[in-house]
Nucleic acid binder design. Structure first.
Lengths: 249, 249
DNA sequence: CAGTGGTCTAGACCACATC
DNA sequence: ATGTGGTCTAGACCACTGG
C-alpha cells in the first residue's frame, strides 16, 4: 500500500518528489539547520521525517552531492560541504595550475582592504544598488614565493560587515573558508570570463613582469545558495609559469 | 528470489554491477553496435539481455548520460550522442562567447590542410611516436564576418587518412561532426590549458589586431572513448569582443 | 492506444566505519 | 555488533511521444 505523500499534496506543481525534497533540504542548509562540516540526518531518518521512501531521499541527496552542496561518505554519513577542510578538492575554485605540474597550494598575501562604495558596473553583477557599501580586497597569490596572480575582490558591505585586513591576515586557510567561518557566507558556484590584457606598470611591478606583457584577466562572479551573487573579483595572472586549466565533456 | 548474476560472476573484481554494465555498453559503442544519433535498446530490453534489473540498467545509462555519451529523451528512448545535430548544446566544446551576448555559431574558414610529420612535443600529447604521420589544419573562426580565433589543429594521420581541404570545405557542420561522420572518430572529452600570449605579425594580420596585442592561447587535447587522444589544437583568440567562459561548482 | 523513459516504493543484502 | 551509505531487485504508476 502506498504511503500518503504530503510533499506532493502540498505542492500544486508537477515537480518530482525528490526535487521538492531537495529544495527543502537546501532551505534547511540556508537556515543553518546543519552547519558546514556537520553530518545531516541519515537517509532513513530523513525518509521517516518527510514521509517518503529511502530511495527518494537518496535521489534528493544525490542531486545535492552532484552540485557539491553535500558530501557522501560511505559508512560515515552525509556531510554539509565546507571550504575549511577541502584538502581533497583544493582546486575546486582555483583553475590556475603550474606548468611544471608541481601543484602546491599558493600563499595569499593581502595588499589592502578598503571600505567604500561599490564601483558602477560591478554593482550590477552583485545585484547591488549603485552607491551601496562595498569592501575592496587586493591580494597576491604566490607560488613558492613567486607572485602569479593579483586579485581585486569586491564584496557587499552588508554581508561582510567588519571585515578588516587584520582579520584576513590572522586567518589560516582559504578565502572562502574565511567567508564561511567568519561571515556565514557559503560559496557554492561561480562563473568566470577570461580575457587577455596587457600588464600596466603598477601590475607589472607587483607580478614582476614587463609592462605590456600579456596577462590572463579572470573575471569571476561567485554565488551562494539560490544563485545570489556574493563576490566579484578580477584576477590578473601571469602565464609564464602557470596556465588556466579546464575540462570539457 | 534473486536472479543469477552472470556479470558479477564473470568479473572477479568488486566493481558494482551497474559500472560493469556501463563498461559493456561503452564497448558496444566503440564497436559501432549503435551509431551516433541512433537509439539504443530500451531499458527493459537491455535488462533482459544482460540478466539484470531495469534499475541497474538505469544507473548504467545515467552514468553514461552524465558523461554525455548517451542522451535520454522521455517517451522516445535513449540515443547515442552525436555532434551532428547538437543545436541544443552547440557550445559544449566552444567556450568562446561574445561580450555583447549575441551568440550565433561562428563560421569556419579553412586556411590550409597539410600532410606531414607530427611536431615533436605534440607527439607526446597524442600518444604518437616522434615522426609519425600527421595532418595539420589551420582555420579561422569568424563571428559575423569578423575573425576571432585562429586554430592550428594536429591530427594523427592513421585516424584521418584522406582528409583534404576540399573535403573539409565541402562539409556543412562543425569540425567534430565532420570527424564523426567522415572518419568515425567520436569526440567525447577534452582538456584545455589557457595562457596569454602576444600576437605575432602573421597572426595579427589574420585576426586584424595590432602585433603584440594580448591573445588567449587555448591549448586543447581531445579524447575519444577510453581516454585515447585524437586531436591537439591551439586556438589563438582575440578578446576584444569575446571571452573564454567557464562555470565552476 | 502502446511503448518509452521517469518516479516512487519496499525490502534485501553488501561494504565501510566505528565502537 | 551496530549504523551508515551503496547496490540490486521487483513492481507499480506517471509523463511524454507518436501512430
Amino acid at each position: 500500500m502506498p504511503k500518503p505523500r504530503p510533499l506532493r499534496a502540498a505542492a500544486p506543481s508537477f515537480q518530482p518528489l525528490y526535487l521538492q525534497l531537495r529544495d527543502l533540504l537546501v532551505a534547511s542548509l540556508e537556515a543553518d539547520e546543519w552547519r558546514p562540516g556537520e553530518a545531516i540526518p541519515s537517509e532513513t531518518e530523513l525518509a521517516s521525517r518527510f514521509g517518503v521512501s529511502q530511495g527518494t531521499v537518496r535521489k534528493a541527496i544525490a542531486a545535492l552531492a552532484a552540485d557539491n552542496l553535500l558530501v557522501r561518505r560511505q559508512g560515515k554519513g552525509t556531510f554539509v560541504a565546507t571550504h575549511t577542510e577541502e584538502h581533497a578538492s583544493m582546486f575546486r575554485f582555483l583553475r590556475i595550475r603550474r606548468k611544471d605540474g608541481r601543484d602546491e597550494y599558493p600563499a595569499s598575501r593581502i595588499i589592502d582592504v578598503r571600505q567604500g562604495r561599490v564601483p558602477t558596473g560591478i554593482a550590477r553583477h552583485l545585484g547591488l544598488r549603485p552607491g551601496s557599501a562595498a569592501i575592496r580586497v587586493r591580494r597576491v597569490l604566490e607560488y613558492a614565493g613567486e607572485p602569479a596572480v593579483l586579485d581585486e575582490i569586491v564584496l557587499p558591505g552588508t554581508l561582510f560587515r567588519g571585515l578588516t585586513k587584520a582579520k584576513v591576515d590572522a586567518y589560516r586557510g582559504s578565502l572562502y573558508s574565511f567567508f564561511e567561518t567568519q561571515f556565514g557566507v557559503r560559496i557554492v558556484r561561480a562563473r568566470e570570463q577570461v580575457t587577455a590584457v596587457p600588464a600596466d606598470t603598477a601590475v607589472a611591478a607587483i607580478l614582476r613582469v614587463r609592462p605590456g606583457e600579456p596577462l590572463l584577466a579572470v573575471d569571476r562572479v561567485t554565488y551562494t545558495y539560490g544563485g545570489r551573487p556574493v563576490e566579484w573579483r578580477r584576477g590578473l595572472c601571469t602565464t609564464r609559469r602557470h596556465f588556466y586549466s579546464n575540462e570539457l565533456s
